[in-house]
């Protein structure tokens, strides 16, 4: 049995790892950043180039990776617990594909170039709209299976619309712009993106606050959970909104980043005794850690330009996920 002590130890280890990774993430890049010098500079009257790199680029980039990764990890755990299905990803209720569609619409119609916040706002609107559609189709009363099927349908439709826009794009440049955005990257993140990301992310996290208990009850099945006092319609509404806000904000800023929300809860679940409520915080921390590491990885890769971080997470995530499933099956879990 997993004790409270072991749980605390896990959270502390993750926190320490996050701290170290965040510091490294400030230093590592195209050019290694002399961190102490940069900090000294930023206290000077006239900040130098190092301090500019630190405050305008590296800190926002690190924080965005941390927040977006945490949202993906947290929402993955929430989604899997809510649907009682270890294969659910946070994007299942439409938040990720909706965000992609919303963002691509702004790129396609050139709204993205009009003002700085247009693209992420489009993304968030898309995420909310897609999630709302799934909810209205299946979320109020339908069972888990209906919900999954509705999610799959809405995702497919949103991605089809994205394809349509790519298809109709007026120039190869527009196609490239859309395609590259979709790959998912933290390369061009600045303070603006951080401010855009923050409110939706925090609001989403807040909505998940204290929902661990009903998620635990759901382990026993929907009927039993209901008979034990869990208000399931309310829980579903609340968590759908949380995922739309948190994942929608993350995807709107970073582009599609796959597999973190799927793999991280999987990886950590045995360490918390499989209990949904105990998985939430470690999963958020694990997601933050993984995205920061992946983003650091792409900065270190000796290739021309930069490999997009979304490509890396899927490239490593998919085979790893397969290995994990086979490994667990062999152990009979």
């Amino acid at each position: 049995m997993i004790t409270a002590m072991q749980q605390h130890r896990l959270i502390l280890s993750l926190a320490a790892a996050i701290l170290i990774t965040a510091l490294l993430s400030l230093i590592i890049g195209n050019q290694p950043l002399p961190l102490i010098k940069a900090v000294q500079e930023s206290f000077n009257q006239q900040p130098g180039v190092y301090s500019l790199i630190l405050t305008e680029l590296r800190i926002p980039r690190t924080l965005v990776a941390l927040l977006a990764g945490a949202s993906l990890g947290l929402c993955g755990a929430v989604m899997q617990s809510l649907l009682r299905n270890p294969l659910a990803s946070p994007g299942l209720v439409g938040s990720a594909s909706g965000a992609a569609l919303g963002a691509v619409v702004t790129l396609y119609f050139g709204i993205a170039g009009l003002f700085a916040y247009a693209l992420p706002i489009g993304g968030m609107a898309g995420a909310l709209l897609a999630t709302l559609t799934v909810y209205l189709l299946a979320g109020r009363e339908g069972g888990t299976l209906t919900l999954i099927l509705a999610g799959v349908a809405v995702n497919a439709f949103a991605l089809a619309l994205v394809s349509l826009l790519l298809n109709l794009a007026p120039s190869p440049y527009a196609v490239q712009e859309i395609a590259l955005w979709m790959l998912g990257s933290l390369a061009n993140v600045s303070r603006n993106e951080l401010w855009i990301l923050l409110p939706g992310t925090l609001l989403g996290w807040l909505l998940v606050w204290r929902q661990g208990r009903p998620l635990d009850l759901l382990t026993l099945g929907e009927e039993t959970a209901g008979s034990m006092g869990a208000d399931l319609p309310n829980l579903r509404r609340r968590l759908f909104l949380a995922i739309a806000l948190a994942v929608g904000s993350a995807i709107s800023v970073t582009g599609a980043i796959g597999f973190i929300g799927l793999v991280v809860p999987h990886l950590l679940r045995p360490l918390v005794g499989y209990q949904p409520s105990r998985l939430l915080v470690p999963s958020a921390m694990g997601g933050a850690l993984l995205l920061m590491l992946a983003d650091m990885g792409v900065r270190l890769l000796p290739v021309q330009g930069e490999i997009k971080v979304g490509v890396v997470t899927s490239l490593i995530g998919a085979p790893f996920f397969l290995w994990l499933i086979l490994h667990n099956r062999r152990r009979g879990v």
Binding site: M1, R84, N85, L218, T219, L220, G273, Y274, Q275, P276
Partner: peptide
Amino acid sequence: IAWPMCVERI
């Protein structure tokens, strides 16, 4: 039971 939790936790 959705997750293989231990008996006492359930």
